[in-house]
Design a protein around this nucleic acid. Structure first.
Lengths: 251, 251
DNA sequence: CAGCGTCGTTGTGCTGGCTCAACCTCGGGA
DNA sequence: TCCCGAGGTTGAGCCAGCACAACGACGCTG
């Protein structure tokens, strides 16, 4: 549980181009929090007072409905800023942030935000970029929820998680933080029961191997096939446009 | 079809705090496009070369799947910048932008972006803010798609549209741009058939009045009731937290 | 080591909304 | 004037996935 140092901070994308003195200065202004897995970082509706940087661990953004459902909107990996209502013009947090595993979080008061943005152009630019990625992920989720079957959505969710936080282990790639069937259900708009059945079948087929709060994908390729994404998602660059896409758009 | 002038530009949030000389300068650098309803502004997968400001009209962001489904991700009202891959670190457009009605669009080459951002702090800040709102909307959509029935989602979609682009008319509020049942279906992840049935029933109940490509909401209050949102959505500020929300989060 | 809470599995029935299908209505073009 | 295509309505049947239900397995705490 040693305190974070400037070297560690300089690894984080928004800070990577700062000099040693600036890094130390940023550290001096920061509050360090060690957050246990499952604990809340901030809650939907709370006023935004500080903005945060996740040094290590994983944060889950979730929304709770009046009926008691919880929906996992995003997972934040280490190295990203989050809870930046100060930049987004939000007085209160729009989501609840919960530590998926043990986390180390730096935070600064809102007033520091413009200082950081002014310190060098890269800071705001890097944050913009991270936000573009999050917007893309959300738009992908909307497309999935609108068009895909539960089975495909679960496959997409697993692939997304091993893509963002996968850890190579013997015989496959495991999801880098504790995850329950219920969590997967909360990500895909399905029920615990359906997800459980699905993983059982996939385990029998040798596609995944799972245990309590742990999922290892042993055959990602087959999962991609199930997920039904041709390749259009997440791969950037000049992709050729499949003619079928225009079925309804053009006459 | 007269050309836009500096006065018009100064109405737009990202430009509202610029002086006359700066406005004229921005205008001089801009390309003006008049886009007919239904025409494409840019397409998913195309390289990002310019960023845009919508002077008037409405833009629809949509995604097309390989199966030929189209999903409407967002509607952009006049006054917002869009297609700013240059800021978000995106080489290619992630969505297709189509004019919902006749639009006037200003656009600038990517290289101008940092110039605008440097010209005054408010430009980047205002764009950030607009992006925060879009992220909120998408996160709301994800929650809706995950937890609500089609009927509630359609009600939410109508309410969102009259909230963003509603026009007061005799006997209700009409959606401020042409919209088909298919469009509504594309927004809610439903089918044309289901939406059509639903609007028929609502018309009989006196909740809406609709015609070809037009929907007028005559009883928004009843629509809110159907949509099933207590009030948690879109209203900002310190809302009290309903205890039911913690049903599953706390033991 | 007993008790309990969390997490997971599996079976059974039911239903919201999709698919398939047929038909209607309006508006524009030749 | 007729035709044609886009948009809209309505009916019938079916099935993916949810609700309900009961049980099993692990790991903590006292």
């Amino acid at each position: 549980m040693k305190l974070p140092d400037a070297a560690q901070l300089s690894q984080m994308p928004p800070f990577c181009r700062l000099g040693p003195a600036q890094l130390q200065n940023a550290l001096d202004l920061a509050e360090v929090r060690h957050i246990a897995g499952g604990a809340m970082v901030f809650d939907e509706g709370q006023p935004v007072r500080r903005f945060n940087l996740l040094l290590s661990g994983h944060i889950r953004f979730l929304r709770l409905t009046d009926e008691g459902d919880q929906i996992i909107v995003l997972h934040i990996p280490a190295g990203q800023v989050f809870g930046i209502g100060v930049a987004l013009g939000q007085v209160t947090h729009q989501v609840t942030a919960i530590a998926a595993d043990d986390c180390v979080v730096l935070s600064w008061p809102n007033a520091v935000w413009p200082v950081f943005c002014g310190a060098y152009d890269g800071f705001a630019a890097e944050t913009f970029r991270a936000f573009g990625a999050r917007a893309d992920e959300m738009s992908n989720r909307i497309v999935e929820l609108s068009t895909k079957l539960v089975e495909q959505r679960v496959a997409c969710a697993l692939l997304r998680m091993i893509g963002q936080s996968g850890r190579k282990v013997a015989g496959g790639v495991e999801i880098g933080f504790p995850i329950t069937r219920q969590n997967v259900a909360d990500m895909t708009g399905a029920t615990l029961h359906t997800v459980s059945r699905m993983l059982s079948v996939w385990e029998r087929l040798g596609i995944v191997k799972s245990a309590r709060c742990l999922i290892v994908v042993t055959d990602p390729h087959r999962l991609v096939k199930i997920s039904g994404m041709a390749n259009g998602d997440k791969i950037d660059g000049p992709t050729s446009i499949p003619p079928a896409r225009y079925a309804r758009l053009l006459q």
